[in-house]
Design a binder for these strands. Structure first.
Lengths: 330, 330
DNA sequence: TTGTATGCGTTATCAG
DNA sequence: CTGATAACGCATACAA
């Protein structure tokens, strides 16, 4: 384990002071073109890489943005990937703060803060709003994917309500009248999506039928079982794609054909939606759009001097695939 | 944005020196029980959190382990989650270094090193062996999931070859004789799995039939298309679950029944395998086992003074599910 | 058991 | 345009 190359080593190599080399390394104005070239060459030759800890300490800036996510979620992962590139473009680095069943959101946030992140992106946060507002006083916070009722926070999200409404209208357009909704348990998102369902059903003059569910494939399986035990509607909307996939697989096992007998739709347009034997009709999450707006908000707060909070709402699109069809026997 | 609480603030609060507070904070022996209590109370009251950058700089230790992974992969994500907990137990923190199509492995490694990671875990690395050996001279490296032919490196992996052999034997036991293998394009893993296939086929006195494929669902779809255009074997093994899922979904679209007409198997036992309408027979990746061994190796290198390199090979188990059945019409 | 002094690798201010 | 030099927040050997 050889010692790390320091600024001083590079300075010695080119016969300059550490200060000059430092300026060159971070592209500060000052050094002559000739100096820049020599320093860069020497740094490259020696394999010098600036020490982030030292740099952060001295500059009081880490140039890092913390992202709290659920690594398990492919949707979160997609967002993180996209944000990685976007952050790079505005000269920041991303620090991932994974949230798991054994490591709650608060812990992830603490860890990110310990690492001196200058701003925080919370994907699909489940923390109470007051806590987030408090956090936002320490460091700029942007929440992604969830409405923040009555809070002054930066938010980037899909219009969940209109997404599900669109799904209902799609079903109605196919002639369905018995359309059920299997809700998630999340406080806000689930409520919004359910509201979209209820609104669209009422607009179509139909009776809503909401049942409890969840966000995982297993939840979808369970929902299917209980629905099979009772009467099956002609169309079922589920909280998200995961649940919808589980739901469909259980129907398949029971010999119920999708979409011939039952039309099914999810939400998220996760990679899973395209994958199965029956491609899922769903609501598209605009990952590049969410990402772009998120990093714009952060850029404005960090480098643009904005202080007022903003909310960006993206109107989502329904993606029609093979899991929905005209209602049978009408 | 209020100023951060420093060690000094806590020291002032309790009327002690920074040194004493520092000892208390990191649980160093020395301070009296009474002092510890007072300091901890004050730190808590003020909301003090040690600054990692400063701490790393001063102690020349970051207590961080870098993990290079593909965030998109649910298997990698599962490993990362598990490692997070395991690292915590031995007093380390994990730093995730995502590898994406726009951010190659070398870049992820550099970033992790810039953050002073003391050891690196490379999940499913695709880097050339020589590069890894060179890297291992800078910092302890453990590669997960891939054999490192002829290299002195710490490796934790499944016995891919025997995994696929087991799958073949399972198929043979079900009466299959025309068993095809759709390989991946990875240099080492794909070769190992293919070797396992060839060995088991030869042991069963069967003629091997290997076709090109890939690791994504789309690759599986493509494989299915080309196989449907030609003659379909009675059993098909695919490089991994993703490919197998894509393969099965394309078969379903073409009206081919799995497992009645064709038996299909994957590799990885990813969450996907259990999900679809037809649960996939596959080879189980022992995530807790891989994790435990990985962190053991790291602990030994970092705190145990081990210098010789070790390889840990886990014998994987075949998980039989619904996608394989006795060969039809025999 | 507690305090003092020094250093960690950078950045940034201010002379030259 | 370049070079000293003082922070940055904390850890640690050593002294008290």
């Amino acid at each position: 384990m050889s010692r790390r190359i320091r600024l001083e080593d590079v300075a010695a190599e080119v016969g300059l002071s550490r200060a000059s080399v430092s300026m060159v390394m971070r592209g500060a104005p000052g050094p002559s073109a000739d100096t820049v070239e020599r320093v860069l060459a020497a740094a490259d030759r020696l394999g010098y890489r600036p020490d982030r800890a030292a740099s952060a300490l001295a500059s009081r800036r880490s140039r890092m943005i913390g992202v709290v996510l659920e690594v398990r979620s492919t949707f979160h992962a997609e967002l993180a990937e996209e944000m990685l590139a976007a952050a790079d473009r505005i000269g920041y680095d991303l620090l991932l703060g994974p949230r798991t069943p054994h490591r709650d959101e608060a812990r992830a946030v603490e860890s990110l803060l310990d690492s001196r992140c200058e701003a925080l992106v919370l994907i699909g946060t489940e923390a109470p709003v007051e806590r987030l507002v408090a956090l936002d006083r320490q460091v700029p916070v942007v929440t992604v994917g969830r409405r923040m009722p009555g809070a002054t926070l930066d938010v980037v999200r899909l219009d969940d309500e209109s997404g599900v409404s669109g799904l209902v209208r799609h079903m109605v357009g196919l002639g369905h009248r018995r359309i059920a909704y299997v809700r998630g348990h999340d406080a806000v998102i689930a409520a919004d999506r359910e509201a979209g369902y209820r609104r669209a059903m009422s607009e179509a003059g139909l009776e809503p039928h909401v049942v409890a569910g969840g966000k995982d494939a297993e939840d979808g399986v369970a929902s299917a079982r209980s629905m099979l035990a009772e009467a099956l509607p002609t169309a079922v909307l589920l909280f998200n794609d995961q649940a919808a996939i589980g739901f469909m697989s259980e129907l398949a096992r029971a010999g119920v054909d999708v979409p011939a007998q039952v039309s099914v739709a999810g939400f998220d347009d996760s990679p899973l939606a395209r994958l199965g034997p029956v491609a899922l009709t769903t609501v598209h999450q605009d990952v590049p759009g969410l990402t772009r707006h998120t990093l714009e908000l952060i850029g404005e707060r960090l480098d643009g001097g904005r202080s007022a909070r903003r909310e960006v709402v993206i109107t989502p699109e329904v993606v029609v695939r093979a899991s929905t069809a005209e209602v049978a026997g009408i």
